[in-house]
C-alpha cells in the first residue's frame, strides 16, 4: 500500500449546525442559551445543561455530568470534537464530528476535564438529541426508606432508559427525589401512570409538573464520582456541610453546592478530606472548580512530562 503524504495544516472544525446528523459546532464560550437559540428551530436540543448562563467551557470545568446524563451519559459522550488551543497558541483538532470513532488514541476524553495544563478548548462539536417538545418534572417526597425505594424502582427496570434525570436532592428543607422526563406530549400519560405506580408501591408523595423546565441546579462547587449505590448516602453526608447536594443516582455523581461564603477552596478541600480514601479505592474521584488539580505521583509525572514535551513542541 502506498504511503500517503502527511497533511501540512490542521483540519480544524468550522462552526456549523448539521440538523440531519444532529451535530453543532460552536465556541466554547457559548452558553446553553446560545445553543438553544440555534437548535430549537430544528427540533433539536443539547440536554446536558446545569446553568443556562454559564459557558460550555465553564460547564466542563465544573462537572463531568449533568442531570440528563442519566439518559445520555457524561459530557465526554456528548461532546464529539474540540478545537484545542495548545500551550504554544496553535490549534489542534481533537475528536470528530461523527458519533462513533476509534481512529487513534482518545485525546478528547483525556483532555475534556483535564484543566489547563495541556491548553484549553476553543470550539466544541456537540451531539444533539431530538427535541420532543414536552417536559415533565416529578417530585417524590417521603421518609428516607420511601425515597430510596423510589430510586430503586426508577432505576431497576426498563423505564430507567427513558428518564432524563433521576436525582436525589438533599438540602435544609429535607430530601426529595426529582425525576425529569422529556417526551412527546401524547406519551405524558404513560409516564405518569408509571410514576403513580411507583408512588403507590413506596408510599411516597408524588407531585407532577407539566411543561416544566429541565432541572437547572447551577454549576456545582464540588463534583464527586462514586458508584450509583453509594451516591445517595454520600450526598447525605456531604449535605451536612453544604447548602445543597444533588445525587445523579444512576451515574453515581454528587454535585455539592456549598452556598455563599468565603474560602470556597478551603471549604471544598476540608469537605472532601474524609472521603478521599474510599473514593480512590472504588476508582472514583472528586474535583472542585475552586481548587487546582491534585499533584501527580512520580509515576504519573513521568507520563505527563512525556506528553507535555510533545505538546509544548507543538
Amino acid at each position: 500500500m502506498k504511503t500517503i503524504a502527511p497533511m501540512q495544516a490542521e483540519r480544524l472544525f468550522t462552526h456549523f449546525l448539521d440538523p440531519v446528523d444532529g451535530t453543532l459546532c460552536l465556541p466554547a464560550s457559548a452558553t446553553a442559551t446560545d445553543i438553544h437559540a440555534q437548535t430549537a428551530g430544528h427540533r433539536l436540543r443539547f440536554p446536558l445543561v446545569l446553568d443556562p448562563g454559564a459557558t460550555l467551557r465553564e460547564h466542563t470545568a465544573a462537572a463531568t455530568h449533568a442531570p440528563a446524563s442519566c439518559r445520555f451519559g457524561p459530557y465526554c459522550d456528548n461532546i464529539l470534537g474540540i478545537n484545542w488551543r495548545l500551550p504554544g497558541g496553535r490549534l489542534a483538532r481533537i475528536g470528530e464530528r461523527v458519533v462513533k470513532t476509534t481512529t487513534g488514541y482518545d485525546w478528547l476524553r483525556f483532555l475534556l476535564h483535564s484543566g489547563r495544563r495541556f491548553g484549553e478548548p476553543v470550539d466544541y462539536v456537540l451531539r444533539l438529541r431530538p427535541d420532543c417538545g414536552f417536559n415533565i418534572e416529578a417530585r417524590f417526597e417521603g421518609d428516607s426508606q420511601a425515597l430510596r425505594g423510589c430510586v430503586s424502582r426508577l432505576l431497576h427496570s426498563g423505564w430507567m432508559h427513558w428518564w432524563d434525570a433521576v436525582d436525589f436532592i438533599t438540602q435544609d428543607a429535607g430530601s426529595f427525589v426529582r425525576v425529569s422526563i422529556h417526551c412527546p406530549s401524547e406519551e405524558a400519560p404513560i409516564f405518569e401512570q408509571q410514576l403513580n405506580r411507583i408512588a403507590a408501591e413506596t408510599a411516597a408523595k408524588l407531585s407532577v409538573r407539566h411543561d416544566a423546565q429541565p432541572p437547572l441546579d447551577g454549576l456545582p462547587d464540588v463534583t464527586v464520582k462514586t458508584t450509583p449505590d453509594r451516591a445517595i448516602s454520600l450526598a447525605g453526608q456531604l449535605a451536612r456541610e453544604a447548602e445543597r447536594c444533588v445525587a445523579l443516582c444512576y451515574n453515581g455523581v454528587v454535585h455539592v453546592h456549598l452556598g455563599e461564603g468565603e474560602d470556597m477552596a478551603g471549604r471544598a478541600h476540608s469537605l472532601m478530606q474524609p472521603h478521599i480514601g474510599e473514593l480512590h479505592a472504588l476508582g472514583g474521584d472528586w474535583h472542585s472548580r475552586w481548587l487546582p488539580a491534585t499533584p501527580p505521583s512520580l509515576t504519573e509525572s513521568q507520563w505527563l512530562e512525556t506528553l507535555e514535551r510533545t505538546i509544548h513542541a507543538s
Partner: peptide
C-alpha cells in the same frame, strides 16, 4: 496508511505522544 488523512501536524504529534509515554 490512511491516518495522515485524519491528523494534521499537531494532532499527529499528540497521537504519537501516547505510545511515547507507555
Amino acid at each position: 496508511a490512511y491516518m495522515p488523512l485524519v491528523f494534521g501536524p499537531d494532532s499527529m504529534r499528540l497521537q504519537w505522544a501516547v505510545p511515547a509515554a507507555f
